[in-house]
Design a protein around this nucleic acid. Structure first.
Lengths: 201, 201
DNA sequence: GCAGGCTATATCTAACTGATATAGATCTCA
DNA sequence: TGAGATCTATATCAGTTAGATATAGCCTGC
């Protein structure tokens, strides 16, 4: 039988990547994802810890237990040369098309089933979320440019932040347009009702 | 013990939504997602068929077997009033924050580990993908405006298409900027090498 | 002295993706 | 006419991800 097809396994390479940045505990990785990669990546403990053990099994990482006076034990992981090699190989592969899922757009596409007010609230809340995201992105960017030594990955991180900015700004513009469309639709419907026309649905 | 927390269950409501549009078979739903919602939603048979049966169990849909002369049997599903009610309730709820995952950005953020050419290829391929997506979106839009009767959901579908357009155009602009950044970075590194400076990593 | 928050590891279930299996019908083109 | 490809249609599995929860010691403030 043919070899089983490769699945995506993005979490695996996200963890390898964080190991290659020098992060040493699962906990630190989770915090890093939440605090720095939140605009384009997410990861759960349920992925991180099993993957770390698996990477050790495969010789892509090593683990040493550290027990400090009066502090809880922790497992310190490091990437090995073969780990770096596998990471580089993955980086050179073209990304697979990702499954698209936008709950907002799904809801909007079914907007005819609820009131115009409900739809407008959906979009206004989303606009607010985008604004918060922009503030979050700016916080990361100024932290990056701020005090410490220039990290060697800094230029690449800035590019991902630019991406987040570009997308959120486009979304803000779209929210404005869409709210106008929704208001126009609502006015038209009221108009038709007043004229006693037959409903279209 | 407290009641278990609700998970997202987007597939469930996508299926309910398609039932409310009049789609009757699992196969037709899958085709609809691929052909019309591909820019913001995806769905697999592994979700659709079990969910349809589950909706029937819960009284949100009904099923009748249709057997036609010389054609294979098929199951025709319809939404019930309680199905419509549950759909409307979901539509009125604020969407939960969605897990962000962009393989391209993850790869780019680790770009320092591979050659500038590899990074640039990553972005060029992505740019091409965005261009194809734009063409696909335009195809859907002209099909929507084209021949048949104006579907009552048409204005909402156009809003989701506008969203797709806005995002892809922002991405195209970002690809251009990013390619320029990558080229500049490569030139700088060559420069440093020539000057015999110590490597930064 | 204890409530709340942080560091840290670990695990479970539900949800989801992508692939594969099956089978009759219809299309294609040689 | 017949072999092979594609389409309609249902079904299921294994691998992967999301999100919640359990545990436990330490630190901070009140």
């Amino acid at each position: 039988m043919p070899p089983p097809k490769r699945r995506r396994r993005g979490s695996r390479y996200a963890v390898l990547g964080m190991l290659s940045m020098g992060l040493k505990t699962g906990y630190a990785m989770k915090k890093h994802v939440e605090g720095n990669l939140g605009h384009y990546w997410s990861e759960s403990y349920g992925q991180i810890y099993p993957i770390l053990r698996q990477l050790v099994d495969e010789g892509l990482a090593t683990c040493t237990e550290e027990r400090r006076k009066g502090k809880p034990m922790r497992n310190l992981y490091s990437i090995t040369p073969s780990g770096r090699k596998e990471l580089r190989e993955w980086l050179a592969m073209p990304p697979e098309p990702q499954p698209q899922r936008s709950e907002i757009l799904l809801k909007l596409s079914l907007g005819n089933r609820v009131s115009s007010e409900t739809c407008q609230k959906l979009i206004r809340d989303y606009r607010q979320q985008c604004e918060q995201d922009l503030a979050y992105l700016d916080d990361i960017a100024s932290a990056l440019r701020g005090p410490g030594a220039q990290h060697r990955d800094q230029p690449y991180w800035l590019m991902t932040l630019h991406h987040g900015r570009a997308i959120r700004e486009a979304e803000l513009a779209w929210c404005g347009q869409t709210l106008a469309h929704l208001r126009r639709l609502a006015t038209q419907k009221k108009q038709w009702k007043k004229e006693g026309g037959a409903s279209d649905g």
